[in-house]
């Protein structure tokens, strides 16, 4: 009921970022990855999360950042801790990389994963689900597959709402999720999972019927409504993204961003 709203992170504004072509929006994700993937020096990675953070503000999505604050904090901390322990683990003493190098690698990795979280948060904030599936079709994904993805998006809040109702109803009958061992607590999900599944199945039948009744499954050629067209701003942004990627790649090729013993 209430949580339905919280599933969708899209912020309905009309900013420059919102007006971009869906494929350019996905391009932000791709460019983030392509730029910093190979870079292991934290100072060189750092501009990416900063830029993405600024874009997030520009998109009016600061609220989403606040909602994800725990994750935005935990991701770099956990990543840093993990890699400062695991970097070069198991190598013999002679080949072991110096400690400072492990720290640098861990910091760079923390910033990289933080950038991925930020870029997907940015994309979720500015991309409507139908734009996302349109972009998938643009990338050659068959219609029925992209439609299924869109339908799954539509059903998530429905099933989430139903799961929450079931939890409330079972709690009213005395079900307590907090008592007992891990196994005992897991078993208490049976009274939640069964009604949610049965509800979904009751619906499945009607959904298949409703889809067919609206023409799904016709063998005649489907028509396609053109939802978005490329505008000059998309070319500008696309070129800018390409330039960033190119700059990072050439920096890497010139040897910047690489750690001593690594590759």
């Amino acid at each position: 009921m209430r949580a339905e709203m919280r599933v969708n992170l899209y912020i309905d504004r009309d900013t420059f970022l919102h007006r971009l072509h869906p494929q350019v929006k996905l391009g932000i994700l791709a460019a983030t990855f392509a730029s910093i993937y190979a870079i292991d020096r934290p100072l060189l990675v750092a501009p990416a999360p900063v830029a993405l953070g600024l874009l997030l503000f520009a998109a009016g999505a600061a609220g989403n950042a606040r909602r994800f604050a725990p994750m935005l904090l935990a991701v770099p901390v956990a990543t840093f801790t993990m890699w400062s322990l695991f970097y070069g683990y198991g190598a013999n003493a002679a080949a072991a990389p110096p400690r400072s190098e492990a720290m640098e690698f861990a910091a760079a990795m923390a910033l990289k994963l933080e950038s991925f979280v930020l870029s997907s948060l940015l994309c979720l904030s500015i991309t409507r689900v139908e734009e996302f599936t349109e972009a998938l079709r643009g990338l050659g994904v068959p219609y029925r597959v992209s439609f299924t993805v869109a339908m799954a998006f539509r059903l998530v809040p429905l099933f989430l709402g139903s799961a929450l109702s079931v939890v409330t109803a079972q709690r009213a009958r005395g079900l307590d999720f907090s008592r007992g061992s891990v196994l005992a607590r897991l078993r208490r999900y049976v009274p939640v999972i069964v009604p949610v599944f049965m509800g979904a199945l009751r619906r499945a039948d009607a959904m298949a019927m409703a889809l067919e009744a609206r023409g799904f499954g016709r063998r005649t050629r489907r028509a396609s409504f053109v939802r978005s067209r490329l505008a000059p701003r998309d070319l500008v942004v696309g070129a800018a993204l390409a330039a960033v990627v190119l700059a990072y790649l050439s920096a890497w090729a010139l040897g910047y961003g690489r750690l001593g013993g690594g590759r």
Binding site: L155, V156, L158, A200, L201, A208
Partner: peptide, 18 residues
């Protein structure tokens, strides 16, 4: 098959919703 498409969407949504 329309029904299997629905089952795919339902499997995906149940998984994601939890």
């Amino acid at each position: 098959d329309t029904r299997l498409v629905v089952f795919t969407a339902i499997s995906a949504a149940l998984y994601a919703a939890i």
